[in-house]
Design a protein around this nucleic acid. Structure first.
Lengths: 217, 217, 217, 217
DNA sequence: TATGAATGAGAGTTCATTCAT
DNA sequence: TATGAATGAACTCTCATTCAT
């Protein structure tokens, strides 16, 4: 019987570790495994229970429904997908920790890559299930489309004022930047994860590519 | 009872229309609707039958299993997603129908956008189900990752020889081009379809953005 | 497409050959194959149709129900299982074609063995389905348990009067004789058909065995 | 609702009674009833559930498939059909508990008759389903055709050495003995159970009959 | 708190039978 | 006469969820 008490980290507990019992952790881990392998709808609670080494009933003691289990897994990651960036980096940027957009981009991409890598399975679940669950779509739009977008636009404005970036609507710069990065992340981690990637080089190229498209001339 | 005999076009019949009976068409349409709304696993054959206005058994007379129905819907689109581009446009490009990479890009993006728009639901299904079905992943890799990639790289080489494009490995130019375009398409049609998009402008910008990143200096 | 026009012989037509169309014959053959392999309940009309190379509907044009098809196959054989014996041999016996019980036994066993061998599949179906179909049980009891039994007992009486057989109730002589022979046939053709049998020897021994048990002392 | 907690005895539990829950017992009983009445293929799990007074799902909680239910019922009886005879009686015979073959025959027949009578329905299922299930045929051949046959032949040799039995190949003595007994049992319990039988007398006669056929002269 | 037997609705699939062609 | 698309009931089996222990 697994005694894993580190794989599911504080992310899922809302910050204070130790809130999840050992069995709860095993349930969450098993669910993450299955959801990301076969999708939410095709995963059965009975197999999750089996993989977690708990009784079927135990799952429902902790999560009223199967869907609640999904949300418990996916919601905190969705928040953190953008949260740290927003909080920390935004300040850093405005406090001139980053003198150039490229520097900021570099830091952000690497930071988000690390995050995605660490929570790969959950991010995969998130991407796969968003189209089918209103709640997820709602959260996603609020956090990403609004929050992140707005703050990111601020940052872009900041660098435009410093004449580093081309005078294009900030929203467009953001869109282009994000979709280039997202394009890479999706290809790298979701659609073609088995392909052999030269990550370092690809990232560098992607950033250069973006810079060529948005730097002031 | 619907009498739709045009929505499911020749794509699904392998070219010659009229191969699908009226009921078969209704089954396919209902399935496309449901699969793209709720996902394959969460769609039940009984509801597909109900929506199609046929008996449940009728579905299985035409498609041995639910999965075969999925493949019958998705496979031809997967082929056509890249096929026309490959066959027609490749020749056009090499026969100098397009003098500039930008011209070619423009034509290709618009052509593929039209295709995606026309078969939006099916493309959505494709994107959503690829991670869960080996057959689909296999087809996708063969068609897109290999076929399209290789031919696209040829085109890029062609324009590099004409000194229009930067001297970067063709595969990287391809990757960057595709992931920018894909990034847009995914955002536009899959992840944020409800957002109000100024398509014309976004496409133009995306192309400009790509050109900035890849044109010879 | 099979053009078999000899395998299903006149037995199934009620005597006059040519009554069954080519398709009908193929249906009957396919049904015999399947019923004896998988049993009546586990055989589907659709597979019978496939094996016969006809449309599903065609079966029901000739036989109103699946059960009627079973009866059409099994009934004539059931009749003939005992009929010829009764008619011809009974007379022969009484007209002293057979001077000794052993002679009669020998002739009967060989004759019935030939019959069973020729119609093995159908006999197998008969044995397997009798417990589940009242009609069959009814026919069987009437033909075998009554008809054959009664006539057989007459024959035994005949030989008892000639002092060839022990003075035991004729019904018991019949029962012992039949169950010894049946025991052999069941083992040989139904339960252990794959076992390597030395038929000639076994039959001889079985008859000797019976004779030892029933001959006058 | 039946509260039968004795009909399904320790045979099905592997020896230790109390291993089957009340519902499990009811399922097994209902299944035995139905299988022996209508045959395995023609019995539906939904009707078994109804007769057992449980939900259909409950059946599949205890037996993964319908076939597993069949095997769970039939396998232990198949083993016990020959096992006790082999173990106990063999020793008894060789340790001269039985001085004469006839004595041994008598004991064996009565003992097996009691067993068949007690487990009649299951034996009926066994006989009916053997032709359609490889597993059963395999078990049957191993247990009966090999095990029992070999040991029985030993016993016959034993009595042949004592000059009680005719000098015929032991395998033939066994075959004749068994098929006479089997012929009686099949007629008595499987094919013509409704006929009025004078059991005592029939058995006695059968044994006499066998003895006449096999005793030394 | 944790269990796992039990549930019954509903899953995908097969079936014997019908009927318009 | 023969077809095979169509049916819908019934099939075996799985599911998320409940609840007595």
């Amino acid at each position: 019987m697994k005694m894993n008490n580190s794989k599911v980290d504080s992310l899922l507990t809302g910050g204070e570790s130790g809130e999840l019992t050992d069995k709860q952790k095993r349930i969450v881990e098993a669910a993450i495994e299955m959801f990301s392998e076969k999708g939410f709808a095709a995963s059965s609670t009975s197999e999750i229970a089996k993989r977690a080494g708990v009784a079927e009933g135990t799952i429902f003691r902790h999560y009223k429904t199967k869907k609640e289990l999904l949300l418990a897994i996916v919601t905190p990651v969705m928040g953190n997908l953008v949260a740290p960036f927003i909080v920390k980096d935004l300040e850093k940027v405005l406090e001139k920790d980053y003198e150039f957009y490229e520097e900021f981009l570099e830091a952000m991409v690497r930071n988000r890559q690390a995050f995605i890598q660490k929570h790969l399975s959950i991010v995969r679940i998130l991407v796969q299930e968003i189209p089918f669950h209103e709640e997820l779509r709602g959260q996603f739009i609020e956090h990403v489309a609004k929050d992140l977008y707005a703050r990111f636009a601020n940052i872009v404005s900041h660098f435009q004022e410093k004449d580093e970036l081309v005078q294009m609507p900030p929203s467009s710069v953001v869109r282009l930047t994000i979709s280039s990065i997202l394009g890479f992340f999706l290809a790298r981690y979701i659609f073609l994860p088995e392909h052999e990637w030269n990550e370092e080089e690809e990232i560098e190229m992607t950033i250069q590519f973006i810079m060529n498209g948005v730097k002031a001339r």
